[in-house]
Design a protein around this nucleic acid. Structure first.
Lengths: 233, 233
DNA sequence: TCATCAAATAGTACGGTGTACGAGTCACCA
DNA sequence: TGGTGACTCGTACACCGTACTATTTGATGA
């Protein structure tokens, strides 16, 4: 009985690759492999959203049969885990934060994180309910060490980390899911306006019309960092 | 052709109710109605989670055929919308916040919000991607007016509201979805420990072992409110 | 060269899903 | 009495994840 490579590092098919190096583009079908599956899953998720990822469609894109995926992957769940962590890879160097200004470091760290998740709008909602992969842990580690070096008291460190995490997650999920177009926003705000005088403050501040997501994100982040800054020792 | 009552207020079945007032408990089947559907959906979601809500199961619980639901409700999506807003009702008076201390008001407001969502752990993840119902808007309005009365500058008001929203949403989603049991947490932290020295800070701070969710939530909220407080005029 | 064998691929099938469609049932009114 | 419109529901369809089984394939040892 063949043994699944699940749990261990997948060593890939042992089939003889065409000696012509990497460019066997349209040479029949390139073989199924975990990296290829994950990359294709990310593409599919980007293109079709969370509901668009089905094992059959994924297999189709890979030119394979649906059940073949299960040789490389335990579950559909596992595909989500792997795609998520893959989408959250650092684009470049993992050692970004090392300026003199720790505030600026934290901001850059989290803005990059957010941008990265917004590039894959399905990722933010998935993140809190999936296992923490190495890339996600890496970002958390970087955040932790930056705060620690900045002098955040040990007693406050975890609270600071989690609060920043919570903020970024919440902001990004909200951003990625809320009504995207101007029309949607106007409609929402008009619903509030029309629905009577039950929401005067929301109406006055035009809360639902606010479209400066980036600026609002930055402002809120500043609030939070300001609060954390007062707790340094 | 019969016309669906969708979009308008559902006035309920016009069938003659049994004259004996409200107690027709086990009198055959009580009629399907929007409120009953929504209430049952909340129950089902509480009991079985997001994936547990199925039109067929929901109908079963109501003693009805699956397709009968569609007379009262457009979609399964609509069921989610209604269940969500229903779950976020205020338990008691909608006018809670009116103490002298605005910070305390905001904390009470958001802690109540969080507790309410945690009572229905499916609700937090759903909230950002569904339409804002009246109860949700009510909570937002209360938050807005409290902050406004506290003297938060108009230029900062929306950012303050959204940052608090983001924080609560993020914290609650994380709390509701992360590994629940002590064992899970220890396993996660041990994965970090064992996985090498790539995550020294996380390991040292025992970030993933932290189980004081309530305290951490409150601390982070204090950070944020501290930051907002400095922006008052 | 060929038999062997595990790695890898794929087809079929099963029980589940949301819901379109059309056929009922029943209270009411002309 | 016959219709009308509110409401219920059985059937059917396309799609889902995946268990099970059969098949192909390439490397290896004889």
């Amino acid at each position: 009985m063949a043994e699944k490579p699940s749990g261990t590092e997948n060593k890939g098919p042992r089939r003889a690759r065409a000696p012509l190096q990497s460019a066997q583009e349209r040479n029949g079908e390139p073989p199924l492999s975990l990296p290829r599956i994950v990359a294709t899953a990310v593409d599919l998720l980007d293109a079709e959203g969370v509901d668009g990822l089905t094992m059959r469609r994924l297999a189709d894109r890979l030119g394979a049969g649906a059940m073949s995926l299960y040789w490389h992957v335990e579950n559909k769940e596992k595909v989500f885990d792997l795609a998520l962590d893959s989408a959250l890879q650092y684009p470049a160097s993992p050692q970004v934060a090392d300026t003199l200004d720790w505030r600026e470091d934290v901001v850059r760290l989290l803005e990059d994180w957010r941008v990265c998740m917004l590039r894959h709008p399905w990722s933010a909602s998935l993140l809190p309910r999936r296992a923490l992969g190495p890339n996600i842990l890496g970002r958390l580690e970087l955040l932790s060490s930056t705060l620690s070096r900045a002098g955040v008291a040990d007693a406050d460190l975890n609270a600071a980390i989690w609060s920043l995490w919570n903020y970024v997650i919440g902001a990004t999920i909200t951003r990625a899911n809320f009504d995207r177009t101007d029309d949607d926003r106007t409609a929402a705000q008009q619903r509030v306006t029309g629905l009577s005088e039950r929401y005067p403050t929301i109406e006055r501040s035009r809360l639902l019309l606010d479209s400066d997501w980036d600026g609002t994100f930055r402002k809120g982040l500043d609030f939070l960092i300001d609060g954390i800054a007062t707790k340094r020792e």
